[in-house]
Each structure stands twice: as C-alpha cells, then as structure tokens.
Design a protein around this nucleic acid. Structure first.
Lengths: 220, 220, 220, 220
DNA sequence: GATGAATGAGATTTCATTCAT
DNA sequence: AATGAATGAAATCTCATTCAT
C-alpha cells in the first residue's frame, strides 16, 4: 500500500490537493473547449482560484498543466496495466489482456473528459516542435509501453502469443484501445451503433480483435 | 481516365492550380509548425502569394485551408482503397488488404508532411466543438469508411474474414494503419527500431497483425 | 432649358451616363451599409461594372465617389432653391419658402437613399481632418447657402423678414430642414408619429416653425 | 446632493476613475481623427494604458467606448435640461430656454471635442444598420427628448408657447442647437463670422430664432 | 476601355503571463 | 500565498487600390 500521501507534511499535502483541484478543473475545461481554445481564465474560474494562483502551482503555465495531466493519465494507465498483468495471478495472457481492456475502458467511461483531452492532444504533443514537451510526452508513453511490454515478453516466452517486438506490439495494443475509445467519443451514427457500449463487451471485442485478428483461425 | 481536368476552361484550370500551390504550401507549414502555431502570413509567404490572395481562394481562412487538406487527403485515400480492392482483381482479401497497406504506406512515405498534419489534427477536429468542421471531417472519414466497408462485407460473405460490423472493422483497420504511421513519424528510439521501414514490410506487418492478431492460430 | 447634355459628343455623353449609373449604385449601397462599411466590390457589383472600371471613372476611388454624390446632391438642392425663390414669381417670401420646403421634401421622399447617405456623412466630412474633402464639402455647402442667402437678403430688404445675417439664417433654415428629414428617416415610435408625412404638410410645418417660431405672435 | 460616488467601495471608485480616464482619451482622439480613423492603439497610448487594458474596461471595444461617450454626453445634457427648466424657478419659458441654450453652449465650449465626435457620429449611429447601437442611441436621445418635452408641455398649458407635439418640438429645438454648434466648429470663413461666439450671445440668438422665427411678429 | 486577381497595410481582438498589492 | 489588473505580442481578417491582360 502506498502510504506516501498520508505521511507527507500537512503543508505538502494541501499543496497536492490544490494541484489536484486545478488539474481537475483544467481537465474539464480542456475537454469542453479543447486545449487551444480553453483559456486559463476559465480554468482558474472553474477551479475557484485566481488566475495568478495557477502560476504558483504550475509555473510553466498552460503547457505545464497539460503535461501534468499527461503525467497523471499515464500514472493511472500504468497502475491499470500493473494490476491487470500482475504475475502472481498466474492467469492466461488472454485473460489478463481482457482485464486490461476492461479496466482501461471503465477508466475511460468514468473520466471521458480526460481521455478526450489527451486523445485530442496526444498526437499534437508527440509531433510538436517543442522538443521538451515532446520528450516529456515520449517518456510518459515509454513508461506505459515498458509496463505493457514486460508481460508481453513473458507471454511470448510462455508461447501464449507469437514472437514479435514487444514494444511495438505494446504500441499497437494501445493504438487499438485508443481507436475504440475515439470511436466511442464520436457522435453516434447508424454505422457506428455497432460499437459495444459496456466495458466488458468492449474488452471482449478488443481482446478478440487483437488476439485473433479478422481472419477465421478455425477454418484455416 | 478522368479527363475533366484538361477540359476545364483555362481560367478555371489556373484557379485550381493556384489552390493547389497554396494547399501544398499550407501542408508544409502546418507540418513544420503545427496548425495552431502556423500563421497564414507564413503560408502565404511559402506559397509566394500575398496574404490577401489566400483569402480570395479560401474565404474561410485557416480553417477552410485545413478542411481542404482533409478533403484532398481523403480523395487520395479513397482512390487507394478503390484501387487496392478493385473487385475485378479476384484476388484473396488478404492480398488486397496488403496492397492497401502497401499503397497507403507508400503514399505516407512520399507525403509525410500531409500525414503529420492530419494525424495531428484529425482527433482535434473530430472532437472539436465547432460542429461544422466536425461534420465535414466526419463526412470525409465516412467516405473512406464506406469505401473500405464494401470490400470487407464482400470478404465476409465469401467467408474470408469472420462476420462482424463492417464499418467498425473498417475503422479499426484505419486505426491500425494510422498507429503504425504515427510510430513511423516519431523520433527513433531504441525501442522503436523494430518498426519496419519499407512500404512492403510494413504492409506485411500490418496485414499479419490485422488478419491474424497476436495469438498463434496454428497452435490453438 | 439646359441643352448641354444633348449637345455633348457621343463619347462624352456615354461617359457621363456610366458615371451616373455608378453613382446611383454607390448611393444605394452607401445608404444601405453606410459609407465606411460599404465596399467598392459591392458598389461595382450593383453597378454591374468591374471594380477596376470604377477607377477609370473615379480615379480618386471611394472618396471621390462620395464627393461626386455630394456635388450632385448640391446641384439638385441649388436647382430647387433657384426654382422656389425665382424672383420673377413676385410672391411673398413665406410662399417661396414653403415651396422650397415642399420641393426639398419631395426630393427627399423620392431619393431617401441619397439623403440618408449625405445626412450620415455630411458632418463627418465637414469635420474631417482631410482638408481637401472638407474644403470640397464646404464649397458645395457654400454654393447652396449663397443661393439661399440671396432671396433671404432680398426678403429682409423688402421687410418680409427681420434683419439678420443672411448666410447664418440660410444655414439655420437648412438645419431645420435636415433635422426634420432626419426625424423622418428614423424608425417610428409613439413619440414621433406626430411628424407630418406628406411633403405639403411638412412644408407647412417647417414654414410655420421657421417663420413664426414657437411663440404665439397673436398674443404678444 | 448625490453622494453615491464617495460612498462606493474604493475598488469600484478606482475602476470608475480609470474608465473616466479612458473615455477622456477616447474623446480626444476621436475628436482629432474621427471615430473611424482613430485606432484603439492610439486611444490606449493617450490614456497611458495598454491596449488590452481597454478591453478589460470596455469588452465591446471601440464601439462600446463610443456608446459610453454617447451615454455620458446625454447624462450631462439631461442634467443641463433639468437644471434650466427646474419648475421651482417659476420663471417664464423663454427665460428657461435661454438658460438652457446658454448652459449647453458653455458645455460645448468647454468640451468641444466631445461635441465634435458626437455631432459627427450621431447621424451615423442613428442610421446605422446595427440595430443594437441604433437602439442604444435612440434610447439616449429619447431620454433627452423626454426631459425637454416635459417643460415644453407645461409651457403649452400655461399658454407661453403655441400648442404642438412636444416631442417633435423638443427634437427641433435640439436640431437648432446642434446646427449652431456645428457651425461654430467649422473653420471660419467670411460668411460665418456672423455667428455669435459667446455662450450668452448664442443663447439670445437661438432663443429669438426658436421662439420668434424669422418673421416680424410686431408687423404682422 | 474593362476587368478582377493580387496585394499588404492596418484594424480589431485575444489571452498567456507578469507582478504589485 | 492569493490575487486579478495590466500588458502587448501576435493572429486573423478586410478592403481600397493597383496593374497586367
């Protein structure tokens, strides 16, 4: 159990709590308006702090707030990965993968705003010309990919999945996950109704797709 | 063969040519600086036209230019889809799919700038709060999905791939494609070296992944 | 009878006719949008000429067009003044003044657009910081004031009106006229219904006001 | 005595003071350059504030500043009207009217800039195609007309002036006043020297004109 | 003579960031 | 520590005018 939070000095604890409130507000505003359109004025108002106070907590301004959201997001993503693929489970890879998709999709349903913001900005940041943000984003992403690559490599060694570059596969798994989430964010149209709506259905859908592909193994 | 272009009156032809020059310049500048950071001033300079002239050709300004790029991109995407899945080929779906991945990846390698811009902005537009752009983007995307869903449905009927919602599958195929392209755009790191670099290797990689998944059919 | 028009060489006659069409178009557009908001593009379109053509006829551009309207307006105003106060009539000043008000008001009702434009811009031009326009406007205005001051002076000499500075009185007469016209242009409200609507009623109203004032001569 | 100002909280008081400084600067710049030619940049510089600060105080920009000037102007105009026609005076209407002309003319001499701007823009606004400004201007004007119509009606009832529509007469009185002020703003020419220059002479001139007209009551 | 594509100066407006209180 | 008034760089967009065809 992580006790770091409760053992921090009060001063520090309150500081973190306020950062949290601000990030929550930023998340909501960014989700509604988009990062570029959103104004710090509105974030501050939503957080019920003064505009200047934001700068006390995030000296790097708007950009730093976005990066903090990215970091927080990856914290949670890594936690879900670790939980889903916990080795002590001794369960088949397919089961763990399904748990992972189920977990991330529940997270997505609870915190759609955060995902909307990050899906919208992720590519923009990773292709940004500001190398510092790009590096930061890349590091965060690498963290998640590492966490996912480890159980993938283990599963390859156990022969549960075919041999391939584990990092690349981790990337492609996330790509499929994000693609499905993206689709779930879009306004519904006839053609899209087919997308599963619950976390467990979605987990099954993605697990089958990622593990078995579109082909028909049993008939080959 | 489409002869419409050569038979247009000269006036109109020149107009289209100039639009093309401007779109090309915009594409480059957007790719380098990002849509938000890029200024129309710079686009105009690159196109070697005055700022005002851009507005003669794209009265809606920056936004309209981006949407025109989106449209042009989808024109080319649809053409590749149609070419790859041309029914008269009578080739297996897997072969056509590989041709499609090969084709789009060649396109991507030739016009990386366009892809960078669109990958970066696609999510932003599709989740934008301006419903007009969102709709436009959505319509273009639907065009490509329709083009891809048709051969998918045929393949399902022929039993070459398993039954599933064809539009959704079309979406997931594009998602995998874009995910791989995205990866190819990123600055290389140790972990990523594994990504195939040539169009044909990439086509094989994606075809295997999408058709067979990560599992090991032969062992099941 | 002024035969100058018909005896001009054809070339010149056509030129004048085209200027007239352009001025008419400008008048309408300026009246609808206001001088500043109106664009030459729209004036050209309304006149059914190209934008460049306007510059062939009015090298000074937008400004020159406005000044030409000012000139044309004063031509007509002077003509009405001359007609109304024609000495050969031998009628009382009060009768002539009433004819003048009736005449200008008919003119106003027929060509409200022109008046709207000029009322709107007159003060702006006369207080403009461009001394050339100011001078031009001032000269035109002076022309009308002179035309009106002459019969005023005669009426003073005949004892029909009291002695006073004839130019100043001419100015005040026009001020009263314009004020009434202004009122007639405004959207009607309860309070304003009282303004006479026909040219002859308006003539009576203004004549009484200007000649007798608000007081009650009969009771003095 | 209105003590509201002094009892406002300091914050609010300072805010009003700054608005005042900005309006003063705007007035001067508008008077010099004309509303259309003047730039907010220059207004801000004159007020010794940043451009952005103007927008904190007048979010509607240039237009809102002009309307604020219009409002302030009518506040002062109404105050002069109320003061001049104060019923408790029990003085003849003619005396009050003369006081009114004297008061407004002193105001005009002190604050010629404000008048120049408003005379120049008044017609433009009242005939503007933006219905919001037009309505605002119209409401302000109505306020002054109401203030003036009340004593006019009383004077009619007392038989001091002849029966007529009081609002219309109020309008015509203001028209005469503005016409004279207009004349006083113009660059002097031979013909115009005749205009009285002091407030009291001007008051007499306008009072006579408005009350008695041009005719010669004693001889009729 | 007629045209309208091209131009770019210049206007308005926004908003991240600073900093005195 | 919290604040929000002040700032001004920078972005978009307009349109009178020019000039090659």
């Amino acid at each position: 159990m992580d006790t770091s939070f409760v053992t921090l000095p009060r001063r520090e604890r309150e500081r973190l709590a306020r950062r949290g409130e601000m990030l929550q507000a930023a998340q909501e505003v960014f989700a509604e308006k988009g990062y570029n359109t959103a104004t710090l004025e509105e974030v501050a108002a939503r957080a019920e702090y003064g505009k200047g106070t934001l700068y006390n907590y995030f000296p790097g301004g708007k950009q730093e707030i976005l990066l903090a959201l990215v970091e927080r997001f990856h914290d949670e993503l890594c936690a879900i990965i670790d939980r889903s693929f916990d080795e002590s489970n001794n369960q088949p890879f397919r089961t763990s993968l399904s748990a992972f998709f189920g977990g991330t999709f529940s997270f997505f349903l609870e915190r759609t705003e955060l995902f909307v913001t990050l899906l919208r900005e992720a590519y923009r940041i990773s292709l940004s010309d500001d190398s510092e943000s790009r590096q930061f984003f890349s590091d965060q992403r690498e963290r998640a990919l590492d966490a996912l690559a480890t159980p993938l490599k283990a599963a390859m060694e156990r022969g549960e999945i075919r041999e391939s570059a584990s990092h690349l596969m981790a990337h492609m798994i996330l790509v499929n996950l994000n693609g499905a989430q993206m689709r779930a964010c879009m306004p519904k149209s006839e053609a899209i109704r087919s997308l599963p709506q619950s976390a467990s259905e979605m987990a099954d859908f993605l697990t089958d797709l990622v593990m078995d592909g579109l082909g028909q193994p049993e008939l080959n």
